[in-house]
Amino acid sequence: MEMLRSFAIILMTSVLVNNYVLSKFLGICPFLGVSKKLNQAAGMGAAVIFVMLMSTAATWPIQYYLLDPNGLGYMRTIVFILVIAALVQLVEIILKKYLPALHASLGIYLPLITTNCAVLGVTINNINDGYNFLEAMVNSLGVGLGFLLAMVLFAGVRSRLEEANPPKSFRGLPITLVSASIVALSFFGFAGLVDGLFA
């Protein structure tokens, strides 16, 4: 029971309170780049959840069973980015061969995710925060869900933005950033949620 409670706290925190995109500024490139259409945003979000879970499952054991016992903790950045890059390539090849339907919907987003800082960020944060393996997996799931939520919400905002008529200098990226600022403001409403729910 105690374990489930801590999982629930981690999940709520990473999805709503510490949303990676809107309050920690990780993964801004895909957030601004691929959030134009709702189905693309959802596809990207799903692919990010998938890759985050896979990379956490791969990097957490590497850190604790390979790097730490050999005193190689400082190699973390190099090893993690390589593992993530290799993993993404591998997953893409496997999906293409055995699950072409899934590859058709997620495949185009996979290579983009290699250089997504949210993925490297979540694997490093899992180690820095001292989570155990299950907590790390729950945290990655939460961060991924939070990313999906932010993408889908913002895709909705942007579809309305298409019809708006901002001043000339603000057209395109600037007005997108200003509306992202308002979406980020709305996530402030979740501050204190975890304390309130699980006090």
């Binding site: 809107l22 001043p167 200098s169 600037p174 980020a184």
Partner: peptide, 18 residues
């Protein structure tokens, strides 16, 4: 805070565009 970051960045890019 986070919203301010997006806002200032948006305004700066708009200024550069101008």
């Amino acid at each position: 805070l986070a919203p301010g970051g997006f806002f200032v960045f948006g305004c700066l890019i708009a200024l550069v565009n101008k």
